[in-house]
Lab assay of single mutants.
Amino acid sequence: MATKAVCVLKGDGPVQGIINFEQKESNGPVKVWGSIKGLTEGLHGFHVHEFGDNTAGCTSAGPHFNPLSRKHGGPKDEERHVGDLGNVTADKDGVADVSIEDSVISLSGDHCIIGRTLVVHEKADDLGKGGNEESTKTGNAGSRLACGVIGIAQ
């Protein structure tokens, strides 16, 4: 089992970053940390998408990683996509320092995120509470600013 993974985020604009993942036990939580720069100040949706395909930019990554066919939600919700990591918060300089621990994603097994795409979005994720159909699919997080395929790390 891989215990570490990394993702280099890039987009068409100024947004870029490096996100690290570490899972010490196969059924334990995954620590997610790193930094994203070039964002507007505020909240930005942060999700693992189904495919590791960036051939047409971030759009070819498909929908959120959702092997259990659930509705979109927040990272602490029972009803959520596996890939729903909530929001990252950018400061006035456009930098989001990421520090998350998640017990639904994994670096092995059915919820493995390796080979899938991590995406940072234009807007805040409403965590499935926006009151419309799009909220239950995407959290109304808007366009995909930057993305990268999650790969095994040393």
Rank of each mutant, 00 (worst) to 15 (best):
S103E: 15
K31F: 15
C58W: 00
G83V: 00
I113A: 10
Q23L: 15
E78Q: 08
V8K: 10
L9C: 13
V8G: 04
D102T: 04
V15S: 11
S103D: 09
G45W: 01
K92E: 10
V30N: 02
V95A: 08
E78I: 09
R116C: 00
L118M: 15
S135L: 03
S69Q: 15
L107P: 01
I36P: 02
N54K: 08
G86Q: 05
S69R: 14
G139V: 01
G128F: 01
E79I: 08
T136V: 07
P29V: 13
E78V: 15
P75Q: 13
H111L: 12
G142T: 02
C7L: 10
G11F: 11
K37Y: 05
G142N: 08
A56W: 06
T136H: 10
E122M: 14
E134L: 11
E134Y: 04
V32P: 01
I18G: 14
D77H: 11
S106P: 10
V119Q: 02
G139M: 01
G86K: 01
D102K: 04
E101P: 05
V15D: 13
E25A: 07
K31P: 03
L9A: 13
K76F: 15
G17W: 04
L68M: 15
A124C: 12
N132L: 10
T89F: 06
L145D: 08
P63R: 11
G139H: 04
R116K: 03
G73W: 02
D53V: 00
K129E: 13
N87H: 07
D110C: 06
K31I: 14
T89Y: 14
R116T: 01
C112Y: 11
E78L: 13
D125L: 01
W33Q: 09
N132E: 10
D77T: 14
I19H: 02
V98F: 10
R144E: 00
E25N: 10
A2S: 14
D12W: 13
K137Y: 07
G74R: 07
G11C: 15
F65T: 01
H111Y: 14
T138G: 09
S99H: 08
K24S: 07
N87K: 00
H111S: 09
E25L: 04
V98D: 04
R144N: 00
I113N: 02
T136W: 07
K129V: 09
P67W: 07
G130Y: 10
D91P: 15
L68K: 15
A61H: 01
R144P: 02
D84Q: 03
D93M: 08
G74M: 11
G94R: 09
T117I: 03
N87I: 03
